[in-house]
Design a protein around this nucleic acid. Structure first.
Lengths: 121, 121, 121, 121
DNA sequence: GTGGTCTAGACCACA
DNA sequence: GTGGTCTAGACCACA
């Protein structure tokens, strides 16, 4: 379900957070469906349960999942996640455009790049 | 000349690296002009000389500056830096477009956003 | 009769305890009237019978309900519950006033807030 | 500086978070002053550094402190903390008033209690 | 020196 | 069974 990239410099728990979000955004995990248990996922990924716990805690804090004690973790509404994802993207794009201006990249060139990347697979 | 942002989660040496690149890209520091000495900059920013040293080492490694022993550090040609900067931006944009697709943002909407951000001051 | 809030971080059994108390305080459940059976309520709420059992045990421990073996659970007198409720509230208010002092909120401001909240619906 | 209450049912890290906030609100820890290091505080309280780490991470997330890698943790502006504290208090008071209404406590009685608690030391 | 992440393993409350 | 907290101890990046 999830694969970790140990070459990635980001911490493992952060990778788990992002991969879970992706699975939800892609519709693999539906609203109110149950996530794998902390221990189960830890076994699957060959990592410590504490690390999974940390990832799940972060996901809960962000409102992406909710936890019912003694029962498990469940996917919260997908709409908030989509909204957050969009906002995040916009602010990153805003930063990128600022950089582009500094590098004297014209709007036309930038848009051309966007179209290229959209065309890719 | 440089101001640090302690709220920024990135390490200080990385901020110094980026700010220096910005100064070069913006033309404030010209090719072959001398950078402030390690000690001087450390004093200025109230940070550890080790940190400045590390930033300069990184800049040298990236070919942005060159060091003449006993004389100091100097700005290398700006053209390589510009090229690097552009490549970096392209890969970031590529990532961003991937995200946008996940969030079901169409090419049209994306381009619209780009234009908006370009229009801003 | 009762609805659970899975977004609430408190354990389910505690929510059941509190909701039952509310129903009694509001007069929905009268003195000596019978509560739904453990199994029945568990079915209704789609939760584990153990959880309902635990809630009922807690209510009995607090003297809010009494159990007749083989017959079921019944609402005890409402007066003790009212008294307890009041004491609990007083201690919470005491804590809150301590906090208010820390935040430099004057008695006047506090009382003003109380009046506002009383005025609301 | 801080004492833990092992009778308290709340987790240790949460107690540390609250005590630190108190120290800041009371002016014991001033803006931009340095907090004890993770290891130091852990020694002081005879708890695990991980637990202190968790408390500090939470304080940073709440914007109460900021962290400079390799240097330590520092108190952020006190004004946001005061504002947060006030909002938290208001919402708790709002809840309490709702409860009071359920228990048929009049506004007059409630205000009387508030005045009593304010009079205490 | 500083904080950040992670593992291994324990114990607890809750369902 | 489920998640939540904590300890002990290691290793890393950063200053």
């Amino acid at each position: 379900m999830i694969t970790l990239d140990y070459a990635d410099r980001r911490p493992i728990y952060e990778q788990v957070v992002d991969k879970m979000k992706d699975l939800i955004l892609l519709g693999v995990l539906e609203t109110d469906s149950q996530l794998p248990s902390v221990r189960e996922l830890a076994m699957d990924l060959s990592i410590n349960p504490n690390t999974v716990q940390r990832a799940y805690a972060e996901l809960e804090r962000q409102g992406v999942i909710y936890c019912v004690k003694g029962r498990g973790n469940f996917v919260a509404g997908i709409s908030t996640l989509k909204e957050q994802h969009k906002e995040e993207m916009k602010s990153q794009l805003s930063e990128l455009v600022k950089k582009a201006k500094k590098a004297d990249i014209t709007e036309g060139d930038f848009v051309e790049l966007v179209k290229q990347f959209y065309a890719e697979k």
